[in-house]
Design a protein around this nucleic acid. Sequence first.
DNA 1: GTAGAGATGCAAAACGCTTTGCACAACGGG
DNA 2: CCCGTTGTGCAAAGCGTTTTGCATCTCTAC
Lengths: 348, 348
Amino acid sequence: MTRDPHGPDSGRSAVRRPASIKDVAAAARVSPTTVSHVLSGNRPVNEQTAARVRSVVNRLGYVPASLARSLQAGSTSVIGLMIPDISNTFFAELAKGAEDAAHDLGYGVILCNTEFDAEREDRYLGMIRSRFIDGMVYASGSPPSRRRLEALMGRFPIALADEEVDGLEGALIATADHEAGGRLVGEHLRELGHRRALMVTGPRELKSGVARAGGFVKAFQGHVTERVGDFKEHSGYRLVSELLAAGDPDFTAVFAANDLMAFGALTALREAGLSVPGDVSVVGFDDIRAASLAHPSLTTVHQPAYDVGRTATAQLLQYVSRGEVPPASRHTLPVELKVRASTAPPAR
Amino acid sequence: MTRDPHGPDSGRSAVRRPASIKDVAAAARVSPTTVSHVLSGNRPVNEQTAARVRSVVNRLGYVPASLARSLQAGSTSVIGLMIPDISNTFFAELAKGAEDAAHDLGYGVILCNTEFDAEREDRYLGMIRSRFIDGMVYASGSPPSRRRLEALMGRFPIALADEEVDGLEGALIATADHEAGGRLVGEHLRELGHRRALMVTGPRELKSGVARAGGFVKAFQGHVTERVGDFKEHSGYRLVSELLAAGDPDFTAVFAANDLMAFGALTALREAGLSVPGDVSVVGFDDIRAASLAHPSLTTVHQPAYDVGRTATAQLLQYVSRGEVPPASRHTLPVELKVRASTAPPAR
DNA sequence: GTAGAGATGCAAAACGCTTTGCACAACGGG
DNA sequence: CCCGTTGTGCAAAGCGTTTTGCATCTCTAC
């Protein structure tokens, strides 16, 4: 702890003690009670007295310590938002929706970016146990934290946003209609005349990916080759390349379970000398920013990430603000097919 | 809103009062003081007594109320991060850096997404005045809030991240080396053999954009046509289209002050039947996700958004943790030219 | 003239923790 | 035998609010 030898107010000066309600009360020659009443309007105060108090408040630049207020009130008006990666546009959009909803109701949002790091998730889960936050919007996490989450679920206000893994029932959950998205893609490709498609799915454990594939297969009603990817760009590239290298690909269209893998597929097709959509059509899922900027622009399913975040948060807060733990309920949000330049009728 | 008819403890049940330090003390037949000492290790406690206390703590599931602790300590270990739009990948990256740095030092981050809305900015600025947060990382805001910010700057710990507007001196600031970025682009295009370029700048008020253009013009040492854009995709499209429509464009390369405008330029060139980089080279700035995914992939300057956020936050916390207001200091972070497929020697 | 009703403001408790000062016992060294 | 030390634990103050419950005082109405 070094002591700095500067002047009393230069550079790295220490913050001086801010005025408290007592200071205001003393200066205005009233009791703290009265100051509180003037400021909150909770009880009537003589206008002349009130004016005096207000003037002192201004002169001293008094701002009530929200910490003390929260302690007294038993709630902080802040919630947590647990997501794996804020730099992923999907979660960024979701975060924006959550922040908007929270702001509307006068709540703040603590950003809990976890990278699926269990230690980090634990620390943030701790914030709810220590009641520093009034609730938590939880958008997927690592298996260990999910177990701990289950223990908390009944006792603290928690909402699931786009939760994709099994096991967490009995919760408030908002999610996109993944199955409908897959169905839309299936119908679109079928209408264009495609009869043989390659479906690049996500990992089997993630419900959302499974739902997308399910919807697609049902609606497409044609021959579907399935390959399991991992939602990363490279896996889309690799899987398509392999099939192409094996010769005589048995598909005229590719449906990747997310945009990133679709881009990988795009690259693989291009490298094989195939044109998109001339020779093969490609469809993604998510509608990330790059989907519309890429060339050819990507036909994809728009996920309402913003709405998912907003809905989960708004629903949660409805209960939090009443000091209740939310009951189980599911909110499915509509998706939308964005037809762009990467799909066309098959070559023939 | 469906109601589920399960047992007495399902659905919208109220949260019951959690155990306090007093409850633990009573159950362990010691004083609250002793419980506190056991948990904090602040003073030695008889091991037998300590064991008894710990067992009660477990049995009751006691977690100290961080609110009360903060009130007592006079700080919350939470800071704010004020940004205009979390769904913008630049700010999302910055936020990630800020969150990482904060986490390392045991701090939490409140997401203050403002959309440049003055009312919203004010509310978040209020959090620092009411001492709910220990400090604020501020990454640009609307003019009104900036005035208010100046008033706060001396009294509260605030750091500027990539601040782009004039007037806020005397602060702790972390920013990318915009001028060097412009210079790198100038050198790159010159080395390729270009002698006539179009520079699409950002609004004059934003220092960063001006610095980018300045560095470019100085290093390019050729003929530069300047046009003022607004950092949005459409303005890049419009400005290039106009020039092209006027006939005989006096440039073989386009440098847009950000990637979005570069994409607009790309579209305009394509529509005019010009190939990139065959006929015209295009360079952007930022290195957003889409830059590498687009076709052709975009040559651009990588901005260390993550590092800007991380540095600003780490620097700020260094002072916050000691209860000091940070002194003025500037941290300039290096940028990097990413040469991709959108640049090549001029046609000739 | 008096009871009831408003207006006005204060004291004190409560929120849940940490910290400081003190009390008491046991013990070893001189 | 006394003093200083070490171990152990508690009481009380303090952090800065809000929220009762009361105590005055002044009207108004009967």
